[in-house]
Computed example of a mutant assay.
Amino acid sequence: MRTAHKVWSGIAAGVFGLVAVTDLAGSSVPPAGAVASSSTLPAAAGAASPGAIPAAAPSVAPAVAGPAAVSASVIDVIDGDTFRLASGDEVRVLGIDSCEAATPGGQRATAAARARLLSAPVTLTAEPGVDRDRYGRMLRYVGAGGTDFASSMVTQDHTAIYTRGRNDASTAVQSTLRRLDTDGRTCGTAAPTTTPRTTTATRTPDADVDRPRTPRPVAPRTAPRAAAGSSGGSSVGGGYYANCSAARAAGAAPLRAGAPGYRAALDRDKDGVACE
């Protein structure tokens, strides 16, 4: 009886060992070179989707990038949301509205845009169905330094989400900008463009322009007198000449004011000398 018990105990132990080995073999790690199914791999925490560019800070939205993005160089910043490319095109940033350049807020926005856009090439991405505004400016999403330019600007008090008309940015972009725009815009008052009127200063006289005008002498009206007999001829009407030709023919020209035969009708330039 004791011998039979030992035999059966040995058989049971052998069966238990076989089952344990089989179970361990089924749960072993796949051999080297085997490819695990993607459905069995845990997703990496915070993994970015293909093609996405991570933001530089949690408060900044990812940069706009993709197959439609093109690289460009900025040569001039007009204000916080508008700039000029090397190609000559002007670009208006989609989704945002910076303070006007003449205001204190606009000066801060322009300085911030210059620091971001002039340091390196930017990427431009179009919104499907949107190209240019009524002024001919290109409407684009702008990436600068690996982040979305509009998202970085709208967090500042000089720039807000565009609300003064139709916002051509996508609904998703507008939602992101609205979440980041916590304080709107603080622009301030633009500096006056006109110079205040002041008392006219004393001007130094110009010798050529301001010289006094000297009136020309006016010949006194006298009764005509007979021409001198030594003149070599006689005048018509006792010293009256019908015209300068007659005065010259009589040898009396030129006729000066007060001289026989002078009259104002023959003195065209009224300088006191007729038939010059």
Rank of each mutant, 00 (worst) to 15 (best):
M1Q: 11
R2Q: 12
R2D: 14
T3Y: 08
K6Q: 07
I11P: 02
A13P: 04
G14Q: 12
G14M: 15
V19Q: 03
V21A: 10
V29K: 00
A32Y: 03
A32P: 02
A32R: 03
V35Y: 01
S37G: 12
S38K: 11
P42S: 12
P42M: 12
A43S: 15
A44C: 10
G51C: 10
A55M: 08
P58E: 09
V60L: 11
P62K: 01
G66T: 05
P67E: 11
P67Y: 14
A68M: 10
I75C: 12
G80I: 01
G80F: 03
T82H: 01
R84F: 06
R84P: 02
L85M: 10
A86I: 05
A86K: 09
A86P: 00
A86L: 06
D89Q: 14
V91M: 09
R92N: 02
L94A: 14
G95Q: 08
D97E: 15
T103K: 09
P104E: 03
P104H: 01
P104I: 00
R108K: 13
R108P: 13
T110G: 02
L118V: 07
P121W: 00
V122N: 01
V122E: 01
T123M: 11
T123H: 10
L124C: 01
L124F: 01
A126S: 08
G129L: 09
D133L: 05
Y135I: 01
R137S: 05
Y141M: 09
V142G: 00
G143F: 00
G145L: 05
D148H: 05
A150D: 07
T155R: 15
H158R: 03
I161G: 13
Y162S: 05
D168M: 13
A169I: 12
A169T: 11
T171C: 01
A172M: 04
L177R: 03
R178C: 05
R179G: 06
D181N: 14
R185M: 04
T193A: 12
T193R: 12
T195R: 06
T199V: 12
T202R: 15
D206C: 08
A207C: 13
D208N: 15
P212M: 12
R213I: 15
R213N: 14
P215K: 13
R221C: 13
T222M: 13
T222N: 13
A223D: 14
A223C: 10
A227T: 05
A228R: 12
G229L: 09
S231Y: 08
S231P: 08
G233Y: 07
S234A: 15
S234P: 09
S234H: 11
S234T: 14
S235C: 15
G239N: 06
G239Q: 06
Y240D: 10
N243P: 00
R248D: 13
G251F: 03
L255T: 05
A257S: 13
G258T: 11
Y262T: 03
R268P: 07
R268N: 07
D269W: 03
K270R: 15
V273W: 08
A274Q: 03
